[in-house]
Write a protein that binds this DNA or RNA. Structure first.
Lengths: 335, 335
DNA sequence: CTGAAAGCGCTTACAG
DNA sequence: CTGAAAGCGCTTACAG
């Protein structure tokens, strides 16, 4: 394929001049610029980003590290990031880790070798901070989302999990529920305990204790929501409501309940978390605590691009609000 | 960060030697290799892929062009591709096009500039072949999936859409349905007409004509399945079954039917297409024609890597089979 | 088995 | 406003 050299020869100018018209960063005499543009078109020239990146120390690439792009939550976030990245002239490398520390590490090495200009880490498994530190020592701009651990010198996008848990609790209480189960997420993420704390606080204010017996955990996937629910109703058959920590598991919960002959919401109310697109299409439509999914993605990329532009600005912490979305999976407890 | 030069200095060897131990492609005296390895570790050296790629004419990058990664079908395919790509040492650049010709074109230019070693195109909008041709002239290996148009010198992964349509038709007929609607996909893709042809053939064999009145189209998304269904039952209130060309629209169809007070499958049977993961979790669980989603992804990447290795092997066309998955959304028509 | 040298395709001071 | 030259960090013949 054509190189800058070929263009220069055809336009009878130096490669410096070609570079200038391609990048448009220095003045070029109009007639010469025309000649160059003409040659570029005739040769179908496209700059080699490998060469440009090597020389100019930029790669026009971003890394996106998420647990699993086939999970609708991450899929939606990834979409927002890809859109905005593309608009800003960046390509995004997709990295799935399944929360495995080894895969995270391997991918960070790869991204570093590719000389990405920044990386977005969503629900990063931070059992150790080594991975993050490697990024920091190389001075690669990083945005951390959904990871409420204070990392100095890193932009962070958080969602108000305490409020999320609190709202869910209050809502169920307002509907007169008293025997409330909870399916949380088994994870090392600090935002999960906060969500539980908010939930517990709401119950405590109503004089209800969140007993261990009524709490269980899942891994976030449909199946685990199904199983956790079976376990929960085995332990406490008189449950009237369950707060499930993500919509996918909530869907599993609804199906498990149905398999036991329970109706939703007549027999058991279910409230989810996330508000993935599909939650509104479930039958019954799922009442849930909405995370601002698209906003999370947009904030991630906005912060990252900002930091690439201005590496020395102080890091920001953005906390996004949650919102209760009332649909059809909860109803007032008759008791 | 450390460069090959730093490593060479510390290990007191030439950069050629460092390169050889890093790439492990030429023999190096064991004690020297040890020294180099030691220096690499001490300096936390990682090769610069920009430099390597520029020189060696490889980038370790692949492009994945899909309509929308937040659609579960593509999300699942993308996941399979990312997994296998990573395992083979490639990073994948995620490109969403929303089927826009402009975006496809823009992304292909970008991928070419990044010097990707290959690109996978799934449901590429081929209103013009220009985009594809640019890839061909640059000799970038290409795999085309879900695009049943004969492109010489291109590997293609297809699914047997004729059979898919035929099976769906036969199944509904076997259940004694006679007034069958069809929500197909508005698209320029050649596999869609084939699917319709298979469906029509099944009906024809049973002496039933697939009238235009019973056919409509959607864009593949949930909402359009919902709307298309409203339209269909307005036109023909006595419909007993609908064949919907993807599961997402089928979900929309079920909800639209319910909103009209119809029960599924008692009043109307629904059969979908794709077998995305969620279709088994719908209420009722969706009967559908399964595409081998993971296999499509795996075949794409296998073919692509194969072609990168052996550019001169004749292109292959793989046609994958579909399978009827019987679940709960269809039942025998009482008529 | 090892090293010196050329060169991949660009950008960017520098000199004019 | 333009061009010659250096150099980004590698790989790979080539010579030894």
């Amino acid at each position: 394929m054509a190189t800058i050299r070929n263009v220069a020869d055809r336009a009878e100018v130096s490669i410096s001049t070609v570079s200038r018209v391609v990048n448009g960063n220095r003045p070029v005499r109009p007639d010469i610029r025309e000649r160059v543009l003409q040659a570029i078109k005739e040769l179908d020239y496209r700059p080699n980003y490998l060469a440009r990146g090597l020389r100019a120390r930029n790669s026009s690439m971003l890394g996106l590290i998420i647990p699993d792009n086939s999970n609708p939550f991450y899929a939606e976030v990834a979409r927002a990031i890809e859109d905005a990245g593309f608009a800003a002239g960046y390509s995004v490398i997709l990295c799935n880790t399944d929360l495995s520390n080894e895969k995270q590490q391997a991918y960070i090495d790869v991204l570093l070798s590719h000389k990405v200009e920044g990386v977005i880490l969503i629900n990063m498994n931070l059992v150790t901070l080594d991975n993050l530190e490697r990024l920091m020592t190389e001075h690669v701009p990083v945005v951390l989302a959904n990871n409420d651990i204070r990392i100095p010198a890193t932009d962070q996008i958080l969602v108000d999990d305490y409020q999320g848990g609190y709202h869910a609790g209050q809502y169920l209480l307002r509907l007169n529920h008293r025997r409330i189960g909870c399916i949380s997420l088994q994870s090392q993420f600090p935002h999960i305990p906060k969500r539980i704390a908010g939930f517990r606080q709401a119950l405590t204010e109503a004089g209800i204790e969140l007993s261990d017996e009524l709490c269980t955990t899942g891994n976030g996937r449909y199946d685990s929501g199904y199983q956790a629910t079976q376990e929960l109703i085995r332990r406490q058959p008189n449950l009237t409501a369950i707060f499930v920590f993500n919509d996918l598991m909530a869907l599993g919960a609804m199906n498990a309940l149905r398999a036991e002959g329970k109706r939703i919401p007549e027999d058991v109310s279910i409230i989810g978390y996330d508000n993935i697109f599909y939650s509104s299409t479930f039958e019954p439509a799922l009442t849930t605590i909405a995370q601002p999914i698209a906003t999370i993605g947009e904030e991630c990329i906005t912060r990252l691009l900002e930091r690439i532009e201005h590496p020395d600005r102080p890091p920001m912490q953005v906390t996004l609000p949650v919102e209760l979305i009332e649909r059809a999976s909860c109803r007032a407890c008759p008791d």
